[in-house]
Amino acid sequence: MTAEIHRDDLASKTGMWLFLFTEMLLFGGLFVVYTVYRYRNPQAFHLAAEELSVFIGTINTIILLVSSTTIAMSITAIQKKNKKLALMLIGITILLGLAFLANKYFEWGSHIREHIYPGSPVLTLRGHGDVLFYGLYFFMTGLHALHIIIGLVFIGFIASKIMRNKIDSGNYVLLENSGLYWHLVDLIWIFLFPLFYLIT
């Protein structure tokens, strides 16, 4: 029922960027909350942040950076008509995304074993600053992990399209868009990492 199909890659890329803006604002709201509560509870945030493992955080940062690189390189591969390399690079991206999630799972698991999770009695006893810090920590990293999962599904869908030759050197805007989404997830982590793990 639509008017005739007319492909406009720039329109689809513009749409993706606009969507990324809404994502930026979504996390922007959380950064407002973080800023305010950090300002009001400097000491508690400082001490609580020291409990997070800088090592795991750094590993996860590097994992995401590498995965961003591989998905960016897969665009070059597609442009150079190297379908096999493109699929391989996308595969690496997906594996790295899963590795990130696994790390996150163990990290969260270790907090929960120490009875630190939202609403836990141990956490409540530790005072308001800690409740806020860990509330934000779980909510923001959780929302970020949800974005990783969405990104992985998106990228997996793109990979299947490449396999079926629906995406090739003449028509790869969807791959670019999935890449843009993945980079945004990376960008958010670039800020989450220092705010939760480093600024102590």
Binding site: V33, Y37, N41, P118, G119, T124, G127, H128, G129, V131, L132, G135, F138, F139
Partner: peptide, 9 residues
């Protein structure tokens, strides 16, 4: 999660 509840800070 204590975001806006004063009793949680």
């Amino acid at each position: 999660i204590g975001f806006f509840d004063p009793s949680l800070g």
